[in-house]
Write a protein that binds this DNA or RNA. Structure first.
Lengths: 320, 320
DNA sequence: CGAAAACGTAAGCTGAGCTGATGCTTGACG
DNA sequence: CGTCAAGCATCAGCTCAGCTTACGTTTTCG
């Protein structure tokens, strides 16, 4: 019978790439991980790892073993979910991760509803970028995470994770209000293409916001001139209003006293969803979080009827 | 993270009923099992067991946990199957269980083919009754097992096991050849009903053969008079030929120099199949065994064309 | 070409988990 | 209704799996 603890190390190695990183994630020493993986390999009777430079890579058999491990771990997660359901009330800690704009918009209402209906729940919110969500969930540093992806930067399906969709928003190109749409104004089909010569305000490298801005420009056939870096959309809007450049803003991030900017709707859409470990969907605490977030998302979309579906000819909240 | 070793103990407790039996199956002391289950319960935070008399019973939550455990174990089995597939050649030990008549009929050809094609395989055959097959597979005392069930005694689906069908045979009521069908001869619809007043030759209690004979008579509305007990069908046929009574005989068990008996085909059918642990279907050794048994079964049915489908008016091999 | 990163091996220590002993409760049986 | 065996839980004690620490080797990068 294979040892699940060792399989978990192998699974994490597949994602983290080095034994040292696996050790850090498990608060072990690298030596311990190396020994355990060696034991797993010995027990398996097949080569699972091989050195690749100064790191180790999985053999095809090792990768296949990881795929099976995902199933095992999902089943164990589901087992723990039923245990949690067997316990009397909804209690214990739930670590929620969310991207910054969700912490401001979606999350507060959901948190209020959750702590009202389940006062025994210990909710802990951590702000983190969507790119960090999968690893955080897998390494059990989070239980539930708000995340999103874009058409042009789709999240690759992760066998270890599951999710339910929450929102599907329009993304706008924010440009200074005083000006007309920058660049060639006849390019109405794609405002991003028209912003070829504009200065850009994007997120810091490594975040999803940064990646999507880069991809959008790349799809329009150019490399953007990055003038400013701002991860906070309110800050970004303020910079745009100050004439410092243009940037991408999702609908949810539009602050209510909107600075004087013009919002050009793009074909690009942002899909927000709640993610959790596969098998945890039946965990009562996770289910409660998902339900609360769904109602919060529903009330948000109800508050802003004209924005969904987007009316390209009449951008909402656009002020002159 | 739940400990799979402990979950396995709980799963086995669900089937074996007592901690002592689980301990014996794992070659532990009862104390060790008790401690591990207590630890599992502590870790789970829910009552999983409760004393019922001088034994322990699972709570509903405990039973739910067992169901999840089956999934976990099946995934681990599948993982080991891919490891075995990753190893160079087909090698290692394969413990095959089979009911007695299969050992004589189906198995030899399959064994010959297997050891010819995969000489590195260490085949070990154990004779055992189908009722013992599920426990033997679960407790890993066997890897593959030939088993069967009947329409009137269907094998309940076991979440821990999987199987592929091999044969579907007619069951006959064997009666002495000299006599006409015993009892009221007008009851052509059901020979078993006509054998109400006959002496019966059945298997020893606890075997599936015994159970199916009892069920068949019960379905015909009576309790059979059991004169002799014989598990071996050749012995049973000899007894019938000697006029000692009647008995049920499946098609596969008909010895080739058939004693002078009359065989009355019944509506009852016996379904033979190969069983293995769920998840092990992709294990190369298991797959090879299944394939060999399938071809053996196919050649047997090809050898006896008139018997499948059965011709009720002209019982095969019936001699006067 | 030194230095850091990454992995593996050897030695030593600690706790999880086993055995064995003991006591309690339950059910069967005369 | 007393006796006995079956079955489970708890306690004490011991052993080894598995961790850390230390060190050596290989690779990559500045």
């Amino acid at each position: 019978m294979l040892d699940v603890r060792r399989l978990r190390l192998l699974r994490d190695l597949a994602h983290l790439g080095t034994i040292a990183a696996v050790a850090e994630a498990h608060t072990y020493t690298a030596s311990a991980v190396s020994q355990q993986l060696a034991a797993l390999q010995r027990e398996a009777g097949v080569r699972l790892l091989e050195r690749a430079g100064r790191r180790v890579a999985l053999t095809p058999t090792g990768a296949a073993l990881v795929r099976h491990t995902e199933v095992v771990l999902a089943a164990l997660e589901a087992a723990e979910a039923t245990l949690a359901a067997g316990r009397d009330g909804l209690s214990g800690g739930v670590r929620i991760g969310a991207f910054p704009s969700a912490v401001r918009t979606l999350l507060p209402a959901a948190l209020v509803a959750l702590s009202r209906e389940h006062p025994a729940l210990d909710l802990t919110v951590t702000e983190l970028d969507p790119v960090a969500v999968p690893a955080a969930l897998r390494q059990r540093r989070l239980d539930v995470a708000l995340t999103h992806d874009y058409d042009i930067v789709p999240a690759e399906p992760d066998p270890a994770l599951d999710s339910t969709p929450l929102l599907n928003e329009t993304v706008f190109l924010a440009v200074p209000a005083a000006h007309d749409p920058p660049g060639r104004q006849d390019e109405r089909t794609d405002p991003v293409a028209g912003a070829r010569d504009a200065d850009w305000i994007v997120g810091t490298p490594g975040t999803l916001c940064h990646a999507v801005a880069m991809h959008a420009c790349q799809a329009a056939g150019y490399q953007p001139v990055v003038r400013h870096r701002a991860d906070d959309f309110t800050a970004l809007l303020a910079l745009v209003a100050a004439g410092q450049g243009v940037g991408l803003v999702p609908e949810l991030a539009l602050s209510h006293p909107l600075p004087p900017v013009t919002l050009l709707p793009l074909a690009l859409r942002r899909r927000t969803s709640v993610a959790y470990r596969r098998g945890a969907a039946d965990h009562p605490a996770v289910a409660a979080c998902v339900a609360a977030l769904r109602t919060a998302a529903a009330s948000i979309t109800a508050d802003r009827p004209p924005t969904d579906p987007p009316t390209a000819t009449d951008p909402p909240n656009a002020s002159g």
